[in-house]
């Protein structure tokens, strides 16, 4: 799939933002006043920033408001609804914490649940797609959730939690990749099944339907070299998990903390680039992909 900056930013930033909001909902840290404002501010900025980034992916954003309509069937719609609910509930919590110095625990728990559900919805937008076997696996939501939680813990300053969570997220990310690598073959979709010609022999694309380009090729047929991607995977996990954990293990220092966050963010961005760039859509088969 085309690794569009809008969707990479969307999943990365909103995951991080909702991860942070999830911790804030649990009172971790239990902040009030100015620091509540700051924490929630960061959470909102990331979550909303991610959502705004996602609208750059829309070719007809004037209809974006209609995206809330089909929550009964559509994960994308659910994601939108869940995000708004989360932001509303978390907003109430933020107002309570920042201006009234109160934390309504049940409301907080609700906002945590909603935040995690929102991340789950985001993941399901991709995981539901049978057409992209690499995404269509249980590890996709697990990975999105663990990454969001680990990132949230890191941002929320939950150092002792963050370290194992970051390692867990890194591990899950790796497993997701390894499992993902097998998914296309496991899905059983081949040029033979795509064309129904397998009964005759081995099909091979001869001439494409057009020498000009088209939307499908740009959007869904993106090829990354294997060597290249192995290197990027190592870099991604190093940045998103290992470097932050090392930073956290070292004696606390604001610069190191910032570095941990920055490394994590960069790592997740690289991982998300790979998430899209490595995802093979079955339609690529028709064009000789895979």
């Amino acid at each position: 799939m085309h690794p569009a900056p809008s969707v990479i930013l969307f999943t990365t930033l909103s995951g991080l933002g909702f991860g942070l909001l999830a911790f804030l909902g649990l009172g971790m840290p239990d902040v009030t006043g100015g620091s509540a404002l700051a924490f929630y501010g960061i959470g909102f900025a990331l979550a909303v920033g991610g959502l705004v980034a996602s609208t750059f992916h829309l070719a007809n954003p004037k209809n974006a408001i209609k995206a809330f309509r089909e929550w009964r069937t559509s994960w994308l719609s659910r994601e939108g609804v869940a995000a708004v609910l989360t932001l509303t509930v978390a907003g109430l919590c933020a107002v309570g914490a920042a201006f009234f110095d109160t934390r309504l625990a049940p409301l907080g728990w609700l906002s945590t649940a909603l935040a995690l559900f929102t991340v789950h919805c985001t993941a399901m937008i991709y995981a539901q797609l049978k057409t992209v076997p690499r995404w269509h696996q249980i590890w996709t939501p697990v990975h999105f959730l663990t990454t969001a939680i680990a990132g949230g813990a890191l941002l929320a300053g939950q150092v002792s939690l963050a370290m194992p969570l970051l390692l867990l997220a890194g591990g899950v990310q790796w497993v997701t990749w390894v499992q993902g690598d097998k998914r296309f073959a496991a899905a059983g979709t081949t040029l033979e099944t795509a064309t129904g010609l397998g009964a005759i022999g081995t099909p091979r694309p001869f001439e494409p339907p057009h020498t000009g380009s088209n939307y499908l090729l740009r959007e869904m047929v993106h090829v990354v070299g294997r060597k290249h991607s192995q290197k990027l995977r190592l870099i991604a996990v190093a940045l998103m998990s290992v470097v932050p954990v090392i930073c956290l293990l070292l004696p606390f220092n604001h610069l190191l903390a910032a570095l941990a966050v920055l490394a994590h963010l960069l790592g997740v961005l690289v991982a998300r680039w790979l998430f899209f760039a490595q995802a093979e859509h079955v339609v690529g088969l028709y064009y000789g992909g895979r």
């Binding site: 539901q128 797609l129 939307y215 499908l216």
Partner: peptide, 25 residues
């Protein structure tokens, strides 16, 4: 009603949907 998100095209295994760049639908 279409907002041009492209998700339906992603969901179609056959490449039967194309987003029109001029109209955004």
């Amino acid at each position: 009603d279409c907002m041009g998100c492209g998700l339906c095209a992603w969901a179609c295994p056959y490449g039967a949907r194309e987003l029109d760049l001029a109209a955004g639908v």
